[in-house]
Design a protein around this nucleic acid. Structure first.
Ligand code: SF4
Ligand code: SF4
Lengths: 137, 137
DNA sequence: TAATTAAAGACAACAAGAGTCTTTAATATC
DNA sequence: GATATTAAAGACTCTTGTTGTCTTTAATTA
């Protein structure tokens, strides 16, 4: 059981776009180069982020990707959900009435999810800034 | 990203063995039949549980599996770890110094793990007993 | 010795993830 | 309108991990 690499790529891309000044559109080839990925593969991942409403895309010359204006400070979970989906990690197909195994596993999963929902990408950017400031002294 | 079915089978088997009176050894064919599994496949799973020290096995006639005497009230996490291993769910191979993405993902994962460590199989047995008692009234 | 049972390993089937290539559609610029 | 640019979509391959089967070996009891 692992997070897919695609989730990693999605997080990096989101963070990169957040640092991009004044809503500048960035092409997939630039984003791919930065992560040493093939552009077509990254394109698929970005399409998922677009459909999830986290970023906006524009085709054609001067097109590319930028953060969705409509987006309100996405959390780690928002990004992960866009890539991994929101199916339960533990999913017994039988679903016996009042099953305590499922209940326990779901609750543990919720604890992870809650942490990921509470952490926003912007928090991480802020932490990096503070770290830099502290080092400069 | 999903828990493997093997984890589910392992949990069911452990719970079954905990209900077995006075350390009676149970054969793999009985355990497999209960879960509608092939005995040879379940056997592999049980070998993992044995190596993890959660159960004891004995070959030969009158052999089979029973809870390890040495075991002290295993948690859900103990069983899961025996099957899934203990690698991190998010594992970027690069490991940049002070990476905040990894830090965030690890912390979330820890929250799930902590819940699973806190919950023991015996807790679940107790809950079932209490539920039955409540219904009997 | 014979019957029983777990362990080990080779192997096959399947599913999901990772990645490539090609075609299509939308957009800007000239 | 023609051309260049760029995202989206789909078919396809490759690899990896999970699931499962089959056979052989080793240990134990009776
Ligand atoms: S008891 Fe729970 S986990 Fe087990 S088979 Fe029923 S629903 Fe699934
Ligand atoms: S920043 Fe963190 S997650 Fe990103 S490549 Fe470096 S170590 Fe990996």
């Amino acid at each position: 059981m692992k997070y897919s690499n695609a989730t990693n790529y999605a997080l990096h891309t989101m963070l990169h776009l957040m640092r991009e000044p004044n809503e500048n559109a960035v092409g997939v080839q630039e984003l791919a180069e930065m992560q040493k990925l093939s552009p077509t593969y990254l394109s698929k991942i970005l399409t998922k982020l677009t459909k999830a409403g986290l970023i906006e895309s524009a085709p054609g010359a001067k097109g590319g990707y930028k953060l969705a204006r409509n987006q309100n400070d996405p959390s780690f979970y928002d990004v992960i959900k866009a890539i991994e989906g929101e199916a339960n990690l533990f999913d017994c197909t039988i679903h016996h009435e009042g099953c305590l195994i499922e209940k326990t596993m779901r609750q543990a999963e919720e604890n992870m999810k809650r942490e990921l929902q509470g952490k926003r990408l912007s928090d991480l950017i802020k932490e990096v800034e503070q770290h830099k400031k502290a080092q400069r002294r």
